[in-house]
């Protein structure tokens, strides 16, 4: 699936044979927990009978992780997975936000603001519509936070460069 993911990100559609092979390898699976947000849409189209959720959602459903999210935290959502299942996830993240009392990387319309997901394209020399550093500055602007918690590993480096506070991955919440 890593090869297929790399192809999709580069704009290459997987061959039907590749998909058949993948389907047979995944025949007993009922749920995918997927870190790469851009893959969610494709996996739902290929496997409509299976559940596809993001890594952040899977971890936030664990009580020990949910309890460790605090009011002073800024939680940074992985935007591509969020937008691929927007109707359901607005409700899910709203309930997480209300329960923890934290802030989130969403706009007033509750759209998740993209950050580091475009970095790999830029590193490969492709143009990107989003400047990750600008997005991070905008998210942090006039916000007083004690800690930044990111869902996407790609966002960690960018936030660490620009944020004066501690930056951790959601799996490191304690």
């Amino acid at each position: 699936i890593s090869d297929i993911a790399a192809d999709i990100e580069a704009g290459v559609r997987p061959e039907p044979k590749q998909l058949e092979k993948l389907a047979s390898a995944m025949s007993g699976v009922t749920e995918f927990v997927v870190a790469e947000g851009f893959l969610h849409r494709y996996l739902r189209a290929w496997f409509p009978e299976k559940k596809v959720i993001g890594l952040g959602e899977a971890l936030l459903r664990l009580p020990e992780i949910a309890k460790a999210l605090k009011p002073g935290d800024l939680y940074v959502i992985e935007a591509r997975g969020y937008h691929s299942d927007y109707k359901r996830l607005v409700k899910f993240y709203d309930s997480v936000r209300l329960q923890a009392g934290c802030t989130m990387s969403t706009s007033l319309q509750r759209a998740a603001i993209p950050v580091g997901a475009t970095e790999p394209q830029k590193q490969r020399g492709c143009s990107s519509r989003v400047d990750s550093s600008e997005q991070v500055r905008w998210i942090l602007d006039r916000r007083k936070v004690d800690r930044v918690v990111v869902e996407s590993v790609e966002d960690m480096g960018i936030f660490k460069n620009l944020s004066p506070v501690n930056v951790i991955h959601v799996s490191e919440l304690r």
């Binding site: 993911a5 749920e31 995918f32 893959l39 590993v153």
Partner: peptide, 27 residues
Amino acid sequence: GSKVFLPGMAVRKNEQIFQGITRLLEQ
């Protein structure tokens, strides 16, 4: 049913985080 975790390249490259996630998801 069974669950499968697809970590992607960025998580795979970060060994410590990859192991932490695997431990949590196996609970």
